[in-house]
Design a protein around this nucleic acid. Structure first.
Ligand SMILES: [Mn+2]
Ligand SMILES: [Mn+2]
Ligand SMILES: [Zn+2]
Ligand SMILES: [Zn+2]
Lengths: 139, 139
DNA sequence: ATAAAGAATGCAACTTTGTTGCAAAAGCAT
DNA sequence: ATGCTTTTGCAACAAAGTTGCATTCTTTAT
């Protein structure tokens, strides 16, 4: 599993660079969603802040990571499961949980967002569900 | 309905100031959720930016407005329906919709977020559901 | 293995967004 | 009207995000 990062990059037709591999490693090693800031703290000495912005943007567009909305002005990112992009948008459909105690945000991969029926005239493209509370570790 | 803003402030035990009334008016006049930026554009000449930050914070704490998470680093705010705060947290439970076309975010007040069953050990406090796509106006 | 083309990175400069302390002003209760 | 309390504006700052451009690194073709 040494070259799992490279694998992902090649599958997405991205060139393999030290920065991209490092950021992928950080995601692979971490069990929870990461904000730009979290990543920067782990590799700011190696890589420029701008590179991290651009890398996350690229990963998003390629469907390598998805972003998780929040009300605290800290968008978080997590690895997508399989190839996540079809017709230009992500199709992650699992619930996210943010713990008020430890602050961590995790993907509840097995918990599928229930279907809803939008009012007449609305068309759905993506759907996000974020639950906050206390996680099982902090309980 | 001239003093609807004042009414809201008094019900929340807040002193009635020009800035707070103005910001409430902006919300009452607008059909959709507003980001700090939207509000600032409408009253930056009258009021300081800092005042807007503090006013939104106060309104949130008092349950006058609720915030809507997003993946674009622009938290939006909308008026709460009734008195929204019980035991320290909001209990808005409706779906939000963000239009990819016009960019507007609206409360779908009649669309209740379906219940979900969290994995063992997790406790829910708040829940948010945001759907993106095309709204009925842009359709 | 080398060279050329294209893509990614670092850096600098900048803009925007959000925070804090404090003095002045405004609101509220008596 | 007076004094007390809360809110506001200002200034200074910190953090977050963006952009253009020159340099470096990857990839692809020779
Ligand atoms: Mn996820
Ligand atoms: Mn709402
Ligand atoms: Zn926790
Ligand atoms: Zn629209």
């Amino acid at each position: 599993m040494k070259k799992q990062g490279e694998e992902i990059l090649k599958n997405s037709a991205l060139s393999v660079t030290a920065g991209r591999k490092r950021i992928l490693d950080i995601f692979l090693a971490s069990g929870n969603a990461l904000a730009h800031q979290d990543i920067e703290m782990q590799c700011a000495e190696q890589f420029d802040r701008v590179t991290i912005y651009r890398t996350l943007q690229t990963f998003l567009e390629k469907g390598i990571i998805h972003n998780i909305p929040s009300t605290d002005n800290m968008v978080r990112y997590a690895l997508c499961n399989d190839n996540c992009i079809t017709s230009g948008h992500h199709h992650d459909n699992h619930v996210h949980f943010k713990c008020d105690d430890c602050g961590k945000t995790v993907c509840l991969d097995d918990l599928v967002i229930p279907a809803i029926k939008l009012p007449q005239g609305y068309t759905m493209k993506e759907i996000n569900m974020v639950v906050s509370g206390v996680c099982k570790t902090c309980k």
